[in-house]
């Protein structure tokens, strides 16, 4: 299946362990995150994560659903990045 670059925007609760949980969903599949940045939002209890990752649409869709299932994930959006 064709792998393309995706940009995921995750808004998560600013709590310890959340980053590891999210990264685990990618690394557990053997996916390599290309760029990752985490920063605060205006609401200090919420962080924003930007994740660029190569993957097929189908698997990325699956990861997003599993991200949304996480107890500390508030919202996830995705768009395809043209390299």
């Amino acid at each position: 299946m064709k792998e393309e670059l995706h940009r995921l925007n995750c808004f998560v609760e600013n709590k310890p362990g959340v980053l590891a949980r999210i990264v685990g969903l990618f690394s557990g599949r053997g996916y390599n995150i290309q760029t990752l940045s985490v920063g605060p939002t205006e609401d200090g209890t919420v962080s924003r994560m930007k994740i660029d990752v190569l993957g097929s649409d189908r698997v990325i869709r699956q990861i997003i659903l599993q991200l949304r299932n996480q107890v500390n994930v508030i919202e996830v959006t995705v768009r395809r990045k043209t390299a």
């Binding site: 362990g17 590891a20 949980r21 557990g28 996480q70 107890v71």
Partner: peptide, 14 residues
């Protein structure tokens, strides 16, 4: 423990 059980639990707390 939270690291080890992350992948085998629905959620965990320290």
């Amino acid at each position: 423990t939270t690291g080890i059980t992350r992948a085998v639990s629905k959620h965990n707390f320290l």
